[in-house]
């Protein structure tokens, strides 16, 4: 087992304590709910889209430090991106937290702090929940997303 600090990096703890873009989004164009039945994590992602660009992204809900920080950093990471760019970041992030061998993609920026999750397979679902939920929102899929 690797060092706990690799998992609970300062940036993650900070976003857990003070999540960014947290709260309701007035006039959201798209929205989706996600939950992780095993942990009881529940969150909802709301976005505004103009000309194919995510002009605002906010989230609400409760969960563990990993899922909350992941949602918070995701909102920062995709705001201002096009839908296609957001989908591409999703794929990179997915590789980051699941593929033990993959090199960390420098274009992920701050999101790279989640690389430690790959050593904790039980926690991958926590890190990925917000992303699955975002994808459901932008793909206009309003079924509740479950990581189970």
């Amino acid at each position: 087992m690797s060092d706990l600090r690799d998992l609970y990096q300062e940036v993650i703890l900070d976003h857990n304590r003070s999540p960014r873009n947290f709260g309701p989004l007035e006039g959201a164009d798209l929205q989706a709910d996600g939950h992780n039945p095993l942990c009881g994590d529940q969150l909802s992602i709301a976005v505004k889209v103009e000309d194919g660009v995510l002009t605002d992204v906010r989230f609400e809900g409760s969960g563990c430090a990993i899922s909350k920080a992941s949602a918070s950093l995701m909102t920062e990471g995709v705001k201002g991106k096009s839908l296609d760019e957001a989908r591409a970041i999703f794929e990179q992030f997915h590789r980051l937290v699941t593929d033990q061998e993959a090199p960390v993609d420098p274009s992920l920026g701050k999101l790279a702090v989640f690389a430690g999750v790959r050593d904790y397979p039980a926690r991958v679902k926590c890190a990925i929940l917000a992303w699955h939920t975002l994808r459901a929102a932008v793909d206009d899929n309003h079924d509740i997303v479950s990581t189970e």
């Binding site: 706990l4 609970y8 969960g63 563990c64 430090a65 990993i66 904790y120 926590c126």
Partner: peptide, 10 residues
């Protein structure tokens, strides 16, 4: 306010 899952991992 530490989530149970974080406690379990640690």
């Amino acid at each position: 306010d530490v989530h149970a899952h974080d406690i379990g991992t640690i």
